[in-house]
Amino acid sequence: MASPSPSPSVKAQAGIGGNNPRTTLLIDKHRSYIKSLDKDTQSLDYMMTEHLRMSGVYWGLTTMNILGSLGEMDEKKVIDWVLKCQHPCGGFGGNVDHDPHILYTLSAIQILALYDKLHLLDADQIAAYISGLQLADGSFVGDEWGEVDTRFSYCAISCLSLLGRLDKIDVDRAAAYIASCKNFDGGFGCTPGGESHAGQIFCCVGALAIAGALHYVDADLLGWWLCERQVKSGGLNGRPEKLPDVCYSWWVLSSLVILDRVHWLDKDRLKAFILSCQDEERGGISDRPDDMVDVFHTFFGVAGLSLLEYPGLKHIDPAYALPVEVVQRVLSRQRQTPA
């Protein structure tokens, strides 16, 4: 097994009193790291990620919410900017001047859900945009250019569920298409025949959970495959013989939580692995110990710890990738005012 053990940096080993600061979650550091992100425009990262800013903002804000600090962000600026990224078709781009895509439509809806501002959207218009992306076989394209991927099935189902408009697509066919991407190892790929990959598995299991179609999943077989992703360092990989990476703490764990089998892996070792990937100076979490941190891994690390019930964190919903309280608020409001 390719499982290099975490090698704490010399810096970390030389922590005050010999204590490794990477054994607890550095909540204040992560807060200030997230808050620094839109000021840190000198970085190459910022330049190269312009087109996916919508997802970046969703990762950052959801992290802040889980840390109990969403109030520290500039709500009005965020909402104004999100709304500016919407196109007449109803879909959202990854930034101003970027084309609409289902990936960023989901991130936009998630951001508005965090702020309890879904009423600002025309749900029927967005639902029409999304239902227009469904193909006859039940799959979804990401935009009018025709790329098909189970990631987009997840986006479609999650968006419409948050908007209370799941009835606008053929949910049965959507679920059947996802099932057609199931492999002999119990996992799921991007399209039929595609190799099982923990990221795709999250999308498929999450979508099936929201759609009420988990009967397509062989929970024991997939549960074991997911547990097998844990390597000796305690971290999780996304496919056999790949290196562990903090983002799989989310993709694997959320699937296991949905399948009610998260206790099958060693939670304490995984917690320790995620914590060892923190940058104790700047804040933020990286893919592996001592790598460069980014908002993507910071979100998945914190969200993973939330699923592991790390003290002081709000609970995150494994299927919607939003705080449980946000999902409950959205869904209970739908019950009060049906579409």
């Binding site: 839109d38 425009t41 330049m47 312009e50 800013r53 500039d74 600026k77």
Partner: peptide
């Protein structure tokens, strides 16, 4: 120029060439 994200006050630090190319693209 790029009108980027919730904090457009801060100038975007695109490397000069990339910034120029993206400006022309817009």
């Amino acid at each position: 120029p790029q009108n980027d994200g919730p904090n457009p006050v801060v100038p975007i630090a695109y490397s000069a060439k990339f910034e120029e190319a993206m400006g022309l693209f817009r």
